[in-house]
Design a protein around this nucleic acid. Structure first.
Lengths: 217, 217
DNA sequence: CGTCGAATTGAAGTAATTCAAACTGTGTGG
DNA sequence: CCACACAGTTTGAATTACTTCAATTCGACG
C-alpha cells in the first residue's frame, strides 16, 4: 500500500456525463493510497474523519446485517468522491472491488473549502439512492439487471459498444438485491432475447437500446 | 387551501430524537399551505424552486414507474424539511398522506442563508435512504415491517407505549416494497407471536422491544 | 342501521431462492 | 506446453416467500 503526495485530481472528467449530474467537481488534495482486491478502506462504525476520491479501480459501499446478508449501497468509479457521512461514525463500510487507488483527505478541510460542491454531491447521491430504492422495492429481476447495465453505460467512459462489467456477479447480486444465480440466469435470458450480447462474463454489448430503456419504464 | 404569512417555524423540536440526527434545524420562513388527503404538493418533473417544511400531518415522497408501480421513498413528519433537489426538476412527487399543512419557501433563499443546515439535511436523508435500500434489498417481509415500526417509534413524539400508524396499509406496502396483503398478514402474525399488539388498524404497541430490535439486527 | 372504503383472511399461482452439479477460464507447477 | 486446480459462473430441479385473485370482515360516517 504505497502513499505519495499528489497534486489536485489527475482524473479526467468524463465527458459524456450530463452537466447536471456533475455540477462541480469536488477537488481533493491529499495522499494517494492503493488497496488490494476486497480490502477494506473503512469499516462500519469507524470514525468518519476522512473522505476519498477514486483515482482508479472501483469501490463498493456496503451495509451488512448481522447474519451476513449484504447490501451494496453504491459503487464508486474513478472521479467519484465518497465517504462523506452525516455523523461521526461510518454507516457503511467501503471496500476495493479490484485493485484500486484513491486519494485521501481530511473531511474538515474539504468541508471548509468546498461546502457547495459537497452539498451538490450529497444531493446527487441522495437522488441515486432513492432511484436505487425504487429498483429494489418495485422492479423485477430483469428490470433490475437492465437498470444496472444502463446506469453502468451512462457512467462509462466512452460511447464504445462494448462495456466492461467492473464487478463480479456476486457484487451485482448484492447491489440489486438478488442472488448470484438469478443475476446469471437473467443475463443469459436477456441474451437469448437479443437484448444484450455477452462476451465472456465481463463484457456486454447493449443491443436494442430503445427496448432496454423501456424495460425501466 | 388557505395561505398566510408565518413567522419562523412554530414546530416543536422532538426531544427524543438523538442530537446527531437533527444537528441543526433548517429554519423556513414562508407561506403556510394546507393540502387535502392525497393531494399532490409537487409532481415528478416539475420545477424544483420551492422547499417545504411539514407543520402538521404527514407527507410521502413517491417515485412511480410507467405502469403504475409505486415506491414511497420516504415519509416526512412535522418538523421535517423536504423538496430539496439536486437539479432543476423534481425526481419524485410529494403528496399529503392525510390533511397536511406545510410551510413553503424559495429554495434560493434557504440555500443562501443556511447552506450548512441544508447540507446536513441532505446527508442524513442519504443515510436514511441507504438504510432503506438495505431493507428493500435484503430484509424479509417481517423484518421490513418491524424496521418500519421501530423507525416510526424513533421519530414519534413521545415515549408512549401506543404508537399511531400515520399511514394506510397501502402506503406501508409501497414504502416497504411489499403488497398490502403481505403487510396485513405480517402484522397479524407479529401479533400472534406476541411481538406487537394492534388496537384497530392504526394503533400499535410494541412489546418485547429487545426481540424486535434483534429482528433488524 | 346501512353503506363504503379499508383491512383481513384464504387459496392458488409464481418469481426468485436454495441446493446441487457441471462448466469455464485463468494461473501454476510439472 | 500441457494438465491440474480453483474460483467464479452457469445451469438444473425443488422449494418457498411473496403475490395475485377472490371473498369476507371491520370500522367510520351519514
Amino acid at each position: 500500500m504505497q502513499a505519495e503526495r499528489l497534486a489536485v485530481t489527475p482524473v479526467p472528467v468524463r465527458s459524456d456525463r450530463p452537466q447536471a449530474e456533475r455540477p462541480e467537481e469536488v477537488k481533493l488534495i491529499g495522499v494517494a493510497r492503493s488497496f488490494a482486491r476486497d480490502q477494506e478502506i473503512y469499516g462500519q462504525g469507524e470514525d468518519a474523519e476522512l473522505v476519498y476520491k477514486v483515482v482508479s479501480g472501483v469501490v463498493r459501499e456496503v451495509r451488512m446485517l448481522a447474519d451476513g446478508r449484504r447490501q451494496i449501497v453504491d459503487f464508486r468509479f474513478p472521479g467519484d468522491v465518497f465517504g462523506v457521512e452525516p455523523g461521526a461514525a461510518r454507516q457503511a463500510s467501503a471496500e476495493a472491488v479490484g485493485e484500486a487507488t484513491v486519494i485521501v483527505a481530511r473531511r474538515s478541510g474539504v468541508v471548509a473549502e468546498q461546502p457547495q460542491a459537497l452539498w451538490r454531491l450529497a444531493l446527487s447521491d441522495l437522488a441515486r439512492s432513492q432511484n436505487h430504492a425504487l429498483t429494489l422495492g418495485r422492479r423485477t429481476a430483469s428490470e433490475r439487471v437492465v437498470a444496472f447495465l444502463l446506469d453502468l453505460e451512462e457512467r462509462h467512459d466512452a460511447g464504445e459498444a462494448m462495456i466492461e462489467l467492473p464487478v463480479s456477479r456476486q457484487d451485482m447480486a448484492d447491489y440489486l438485491g438478488l442472488t448470484i444465480e438469478t443475476v446469471s440466469r437473467t443475463l443469459t435470458q436477456l441474451q437469448h432475447e437479443g437484448l444484450i450480447q455477452l462476451q465472456g462474463c465481463r463484457q456486454v454489448r447493449l443491443a436494442r437500446r430503445q427496448t432496454l430503456c423501456e424495460l425501466c419504464e
